Computed example of a mutant assay.
Amino acid sequence: MDRLADTSLVGGERVDATDHCLAGIARLSNEVKDAASYIPTYDQRIYAEAIKALQDKLSETRAMVEPRPKFSFKTKKNPSAVSLADAAQLAVEGRRHIPGYNSSPGTSSVGSSAAQTPNYPSTPLNEPDRQLQPRAEVAPTSIPALTVDNAEKLKPEEQVTPFAAPAVSSVTVNNHYGLHIMLPASGSTATVPASITSLRHCVVDMSIPTVNGKPYASLAVKGVKESLLVCGQIDGPAHITGVENSIIVVTCRQFRMHNCANVDVYLSSSSNPIIEDCTNIRFGRIPRVYALDQDCPDLDCWNQVEDFKWIKPEPSPNWSLISQDDAVAEEVWAEIVPGGPGWSLDDILRAIKIVKA
C-alpha cells in the first residue's frame, strides 16, 4: 500500500498493485474464516479489527493516489418528471374515463418505470460460501429477520452457527436445549432489536456482531434456565424476565429485570439497573474481554441497583455484589467461554459455575 503512490499508471501497473492488495486482504479474511471454529472469540475480534483497518487504509491510500476525475456535468432527474412509459400509461388510464371511449381488445398495460428491481443479499465477508445455493429474492420493502429457532429438543453435543443475511430486521434465538450458539459477525449489520426466549442448558454468544460499533437496538430475554447469555452491546434497554439459575453478560443503556431468581449479572450500564420481584440476584462489573474501549468506570452504574419492590431504608436482601472469590476469572471469559476443541458445552457451564463440578 505504501508503494502505490510510486507505482506507474502506465500499462495498468497501479491497478495491478491495488488488485494485489485487495487479494491479500481477502486471503487473510478467508484464513480467519477457516480458523473460526477453533480460535477464541477474543482473537476473532482482534483479527476482524485488523482486517477492517487494512481495508480502511487501502481505501484512504487509493483516494490519495488516484488521479482526480475530469470535470463533467451530471444530469439530475427531476423528481416530478415521468418517463415515456409512465406517460403512455397515464394516457391509457385517462382515456378509459372519457365517455364513449373503449380500449381495443387485447391491449396490454404499459409497465411503469417506477418498478424497483429486487435486491439479492450477497454472501458476507468471513461467512460460509453459499454460491452453490439458489438465491431468494428479497422485496425492496421487506427486510428478513435472523431467527435461530427450534421447536424440538436437540442433543447436547450438537452445535449451531447460524448463517445471517447482510441486512436483518431483528435477531431472535428461540426454543433450544443443550446448545452452544455463536452468532457470526454478520448477525447484525444495523441497529436491530434482539430477543432470547425459551432456553435451557445453553450458551448463547451474541457479542461478535456488535464488536464493530453495530449494537442491537434493544434486548428482550424471557424464559431462560441454567444458561449463559453473552448479549453484546445494546444501544437501548435490556428487559430480562423469568430467568433462573443463569449468568447474563451485557452492556446497555438501561437494565430492567423482572421475576428472576439465582442470576449473576455481569453488567455495564449508563443508568441505574432496576429489579422487581427478583430474589438472589448478584451484580458484577463487565469482564474486560467484553468491555468497550471507551467505557468510563466513573460513569458506569452497574452497582447502583434499585429494587422497586423494596421501599425500606435498609439495603434490599434481593440483590448483592459478586465477591472476588465467586466472580468468574478473566481467563475463563477469554479462553474457555468461546469454546473450541477440547471444550464441551458442559465444560463451559462448569467453568462459569452454572453446573456444579
Rank of each mutant, 00 (worst) to 15 (best):
M1G: 10
M1S: 11
A5W: 01
S8W: 00
G11E: 08
E13S: 06
D16F: 06
T18L: 15
L22Y: 01
G24A: 13
I25Q: 06
L28H: 05
L28Y: 02
E31N: 06
K33P: 00
S37H: 13
S37L: 09
Y38L: 02
I39E: 00
A48Y: 04
A50M: 09
D56A: 10
T61P: 06
R62K: 06
V65Y: 02
P67W: 07
S72I: 08
N78G: 04
P79W: 06
S80T: 11
L84N: 14
G94Y: 10
P99W: 05
G111I: 09
G111Q: 12
S112L: 15
S112N: 09
S113Q: 07
N119I: 14
Y120M: 13
S122D: 14
N126V: 06
E127G: 02
E127D: 11
P128A: 08
P128Y: 10
E137N: 09
V138C: 06
A145G: 13
E157G: 07
E158C: 08
V160K: 08
A164H: 04
A164S: 15
V168L: 10
V173H: 01
N174V: 04
H176A: 11
L179A: 15
H180T: 14
H180Q: 12
I181V: 15
P184C: 05
P184K: 03
S186L: 07
G187N: 08
P193G: 07
L199E: 05
R200A: 14
C202R: 00
M206F: 01
S207E: 06
I208W: 06
P209N: 07
V211H: 04
L229G: 03
G232W: 01
I234N: 02
I234W: 04
A238H: 02
H239E: 10
I240H: 05
T241A: 12
E244M: 12
N245G: 02
I248T: 07
V249H: 01
V249T: 08
C252Q: 03
R256E: 08
N262L: 12
D264G: 03
S268K: 01
S268A: 12
S269L: 02
S270L: 12
D277F: 14
T279N: 14
I281H: 02
G284E: 03
I286W: 01
I286T: 06
V289F: 01
Y290W: 05
A291T: 12
Q294C: 11
D295L: 07
D295M: 05
C296N: 15
C296G: 07
L299C: 11
N303V: 02
V305L: 06
W310F: 09
P313L: 09
P313V: 05
E314K: 14
P315N: 10
N318W: 02
W319I: 04
S320P: 00
I322P: 01
A334C: 07
A334S: 15
I336A: 03
W343F: 15
S344R: 07
I348Y: 05
L349Y: 02
R350L: 03
I352C: 09
I354E: 02
V355W: 08
A357W: 12
A357P: 13
